[in-house]
């Protein structure tokens, strides 16, 4: 019998919500702290924009455009932390303790089963805040008489599509990272490593496009681990830092993002399967 993936997912979501709600104070504090990080970040860039008109010469990332970018980063971060982060960590733990045995025995796809059991609802408010920041900055931007922002509702599906691509890429990176714990025995630094990697996508990619090291970083994080396009492409759809119509390279990069999402998902599936082959349980 085919298991109903949707029903299983909804049950996971419900269970996680019940669990979050039974430690309500902890839940609220988690919300508050993740929102505080975001607000502090916002404050830093508010200060920076008092001193400069844009980030990167001629890049078009002026204040309102950049805050659309920042909002997009929050949305993607929140998606990743809500749906994937806790599960990736749990997966490492399952490998270390040998409890992965039980997941392997269940009559459902193992990758699905380890990917979604825990949904961290407390990280969701951050994404809502990000969406709010995007909307607010868009209004500011369209009221700016110096800018000629061409925006219609047609952009929303495109934005959501590229956000989804971004989330898929981040999910794949995470699955690959946590699969390595099968070979390494344990991967304590998963969260740290994730923090260091996401550091790169928090800023417009133009800042790297100068000097040899910068270009090397840009190339690595665009074509090897495609995390720069995760935030940059959806943000560009709405902020249009260089106006419309898009330049050829922007179009190419957008097409590449969709391709990268598919490729990284396939790659993560492959790595996951390979890793499972090397799994040798533990203790018992």
């Amino acid at each position: 019998m085919q298991p109903s993936y949707l029903n299983v997912f909804l049950t996971f979501a419900r269970n996680s919500l019940i669990r979050d709600m039974s430690f309500r104070m902890n839940f609220i504090l988690q919300c508050v702290s993740s929102i505080s990080w975001a607000v502090m970040n916002f404050g830093l860039f508010k200060i920076i924009y008092q001193h400069t008109s844009s980030i990167g010469r001629g890049s078009g990332w002026e204040e309102n455009e950049f805050f659309i970018f920042l909002g997009t980063v929050w949305v993607i971060n929140s998606l990743v932390q809500t749906f994937f982060m806790a599960n990736a960590e749990e997966f490492s733990e399952l490998i270390r303790t040998g409890n992965l045995d039980f997941a392997l025995l269940k009559p459902i796809d193992t990758q699905f089963l380890i990917s979604f059991p825990r949904i961290n609802w407390a990280q969701l408010p951050n994404g809502i805040l990000g969406a709010g920041l995007i909307v607010y900055s868009l209004i500011q931007l369209s009221n700016d008489s110096n800018k000629n922002l061409q925006l219609s509702l047609a952009y929303l599906p495109a934005f959501l599509f590229f956000v989804a691509c971004g989330a898929i890429i981040m999910y794949s990176v995470m699955i690959v990272l946590s699969s390595t714990s099968i070979w390494l025995g344990r991967n304590q630094n998963l969260y740290t490593f994730w923090f260091y990697i996401t550091n790169f996508y928090r800023y417009p990619m133009e800042i790297y496009q100068r000097s040899g090291i910068g270009m090397a970083l840009w190339g690595t994080f665009t074509f090897v681990i495609p995390i720069l396009v995760v935030s940059n492409i959806p943000a560009r759809v709405l902020a249009q830092p260089l106006g419309t119509p898009w330049k050829t390279w922007e179009l190419l990069l957008a097409g590449y993002t969709a391709l990268a999402a598919v490729l990284s998902l396939v790659a993560s599936r492959w790595v996951f399967k390979r890793a499972l082959l090397s799994y040798r349980s533990a203790s018992s």
Binding site: T52, I55, R57, S59, N199, Y203, I207, R210
Partner: peptide, 13 residues
Amino acid sequence: TQIFLWWAIYDVI
């Protein structure tokens, strides 16, 4: 990333 971020900012200034 800080080096590149501030580089881009100071460049504009």
